[in-house]
């Protein structure tokens, strides 16, 4: 009970420490990365086959910037659980996205061509 006011004060200081500087750095980096990905897609300065990899790298970098500077995910002990939940979320997202694409591509490749399928149904 005695520790309640102390707790409140500590959490207030925590709030104050997420500074304007962090948001400004985050905004700057995010603007740079957004311009880079739009620029890479519109102007044909990058070798075309490497473009998907570049766009993916820029998107992942920007998500990282948002997580660190806007969502304040850090290595601090308070956010250990947050990081674990995030890692689990990324794992599930990877399973769903790449699993679906793999399975559907496989089914698509093994499917009988449509004209043969229609002939069989006659």
């Amino acid at each position: 009970m005695n520790s309640e006011p102390g707790h409140a004060a500590a959490s207030d200081e925590e709030v104050g420490s997420t500074s304007l500087q962090s948001y400004l750095i985050g905004l700057g980096l995010a603007i740079l990365l957004t311009l880079a990905s739009f620029g890479a897609a519109v102007m044909h300065v990058v070798w075309a086959p490497s473009l998907p990899v570049l766009l993916a790298a820029l998107a992942i970098a920007q998500m990282g910037v948002h997580l660190v500077f806007f969502l304040h995910v850090s290595s601090a002990p308070d956010s250990t659980n947050t990081v674990l939940a995030l890692a689990f979320g990324i794992f599930i997202v990877g399973l769903i996205v790449f699993g679906s694409m793999l399975i559907m591509a496989n089914l698509n490749a093994n499917m009988m061509p449509m004209d043969q399928l229609i002939q069989m149904q006659r």
């Binding site: 707790h7 979320g89 599930i92």
Partner: peptide, 26 residues
Amino acid sequence: SIRTVVSFGFWLFLVSDIIIFSALFA
């Protein structure tokens, strides 16, 4: 602190929301 617990609980909701989006992305 309550603040840590509340933001963690909401974070779990956000992760599940992102999983919904991942299904739509797939």
